[in-house]
């Protein structure tokens, strides 16, 4: 089985991966500190533009990935909307108690969840793990020992998926019924995880020995096949974020969607 995951390279791919990760991290922290839903909605449009037009992945794939986003939105917002506290009651039925405050808090949480997801996926879709780890070694001085272990581990994932498929067939042929409920889940987990783990541990061990056989060592310097540097694209990225950031605030003040400026109040 081979999964085709080809894409066009865009400017987002050319951003220095360490820098990209750093800003993604900053965005995450900043997001938690935004309490004005209007800003958040503008923010979402800013990131959505990146997701829709600049990841270089085909439309169909982007749409499929987007489906769970909606699920995140629904689950994180509804739980707050239905069960949150507030003074202005809109609707009450048994445990469900919707108030104006809880409604907006719920929306706020939902949007926040979506933005988290978009930023994370944009990063994942536009960053080759190999470049990420080369960049970690070169810009963040990560020890090659860790970087190459991760890269080797990533190589194991498609092999594991293939093995899981085989295992699935084998269990079916043997007529394994794992039963229902928690116990069934436990049995299923056991019948998959033990053979998969035993194979993976063996493979990982072999790769480790093979790496040493190729004179990979912890000591001494090494040269790099890929030199990951900073470029103009990095500036574009930073400016884009700053623009989104200021525009979001400006528009939220000038043209708010809702009259609420802080959902905590």
């Amino acid at each position: 089985m081979s999964i085709d995951f080809s894409y066009q390279e865009t400017w987002l791919h050319k951003i220095n991966p360490s820098l990209k990760l750093g800003f993604v991290f900053l965005l995450f922290i900043h997001l938690i500190m935004i309490h004005n839903t209007n800003i958040l909605i503008n923010y979402m449009f800013g990131t959505l533009i990146l997701y829709l037009f600049f990841t270089g992945h085909p439309w169909k794939r982007l749409m499929i990935i987007f489906l769970p986003f909606l699920l995140i939105f629904l689950t994180s917002s509804t739980s707050m909307i239905f069960f949150g506290k507030g003074d202005v009651t809109w609707f009450k039925w048994g445990l469900i108690h919707i108030t104006e405050e809880s409604f907006f808090r719920g929306l706020h949480l939902g949007f926040r969840g979506i933005i988290f997801a978009i930023i994370g996926v944009v990063f994942a879709l536009t960053t080759r793990p190999v470049y990420l780890f080369y960049s970690f070694m070169q810009q963040l001085k990560l020890k090659p020992k860790y970087a190459y272990s991760f890269m080797a581990a990533i190589r194991l994932i498609p092999l594991m998926i293939e093995e899981m498929q085989t295992l699935h067939y084998a269990l079916k042929v043997r007529g394994v019924q794992s039963g229902k409920g928690i116990r069934g889940l436990y049995n299923k987990l056991k019948s998959y995880s033990i053979p998969l783990l035993s194979q993976s541990i063996r493979k990982a061990f072999r790769i480790a020995v093979a790496m040493e056989a190729k004179r990979f060592s912890n000591s001494g310097n090494r040269t790099y096949y890929y030199q990951i540097n900073f470029s103009k694209v990095d500036l574009v990225f930073v400016f884009y974020l700053i623009a989104v950031f200021t525009l979001s605030y400006y528009m939220a003040v000038q043209y708010p969607y809702f009259p609420i400026t802080d959902v905590r109040l």
Binding site: V130, M151, A152, I154, R202, I207, A210, M211, A213
Partner: peptide, 12 residues
């Protein structure tokens, strides 16, 4: 080594 799949550590 014997196993073609477990002696490479890079994807390309």
């Amino acid at each position: 080594f014997q196993d073609p799949d477990s002696q490479f550590c890079m994807p390309f």
